[in-house]
């Protein structure tokens, strides 16, 4: 059975799709059979970031509607074995994501993959709810600024009450924080919230901190997940995050003047 991971944030433009692509690619690079699904029906970004936009024939909605089967719609990544992409439809809207349909597709995928990464759309509406509903755990992507933190907090509240696991009487799914576009210099100048500030407000475990980096933009433009650019700081930071996701313990990098006590607390949970 696959483990279903939702990458979510509430706020748009904080790096959900970049993160979904990087985490999925990182998992596949470590040999796990991984699929990444674009839940942002109507907008469709994941295939661009993954560099497979010219190979899209069928999409997620086609599979839900039974126009195509899963095999036809899944796009095999050319660079990384074990990595598949299920793109979103650009011609439909999020109402096309039916509860039964999503459940059936995820159920079918769960037999073939070790990890299914769900790239959530922004907002707290249907698309985001559907992406989160079946998840076993969540990665909450947050930028170090107040509105992003507030939205992440909201999403954490929704995750605590609106997942299948909770509705079936289970515990809320675990959620971990991925702080993206972090600039230690701007934090020092007081222009940005620190890891400490964000950690204190959200009070969840920290999965990683991705520095603000030109490499992310370059990677997006090239259609290559940034985690494959191991020369770059962002690539390495994502690699660390994937390692931590899989239970490895790695120190934070690219965060200047780390304050041990707090990190210990964040990781210790």
């Amino acid at each position: 059975m696959a483990r279903i991971v939702v990458v979510t944030s509430g706020k748009g433009g904080v790096g959900k799709t970049t993160t979904s692509a990087a985490i999925a690619t990182g998992l596949a690079l470590r040999g796990h059979r991984t699929a990444v699904i674009d839940f942002d029906v109507g907008l469709r970004n994941l295939d661009l970031i993954m560099g497979c936009e010219r190979r899209v024939v069928y999409d997620f909605v086609n599979v839900i509607n039974g126009d195509a089967n899963l095999k036809q719609a899944l796009i095999r990544d050319k660079r990384v074995d074990n990595l598949h992409i299920l793109p979103a439809s650009q011609t439909r809207d999020k109402d096309a994501l039916t509860e039964d349909g999503v459940e059936r597709v995820l159920g079918e995928m769960a037999e073939e993959f070790d990890y299914i990464v769900c790239d959530s759309p922004a907002g707290i509406e249907r698309g985001a709810l559907m992406a989160a509903y079946h998840a076993d755990e969540a990665i909450v992507v947050t930028n170090p600024e107040v509105s992003s933190v507030r939205d992440s907090d909201r999403i954490l509240g929704i995750l605590a009450s609106k997942t299948r696991q909770v509705e079936q009487g289970g515990d809320p799914i675990p959620g971990r924080l991925l702080l993206t576009r972090y600039s230690p210099e701007r934090v020092e100048r007081g222009e940005m919230l620190s890891i400490e500030d964000v950690g204190e407000i959200l009070a969840i475990d920290l999965l990683g901190v991705i520095p603000e980096s030109q490499a992310v933009l370059n990677a997006s433009n090239a259609g290559q997940p940034v985690v494959m650019d191991m020369e770059s700081d962002a690539g390495q930071a994502y690699d660390d995050a994937v390692a931590r996701f899989l239970g490895e313990s790695r120190p934070l990098r690219f965060v200047d003047a780390p304050k041990r006590g707090l990190f210990g607390r964040l990781f210790g949970g």
Partner: peptide
């Protein structure tokens, strides 16, 4: 016992 989040 759980954090009370924004919107709750």
């Amino acid at each position: 016992d759980q954090p009370v989040r924004s919107g709750q």
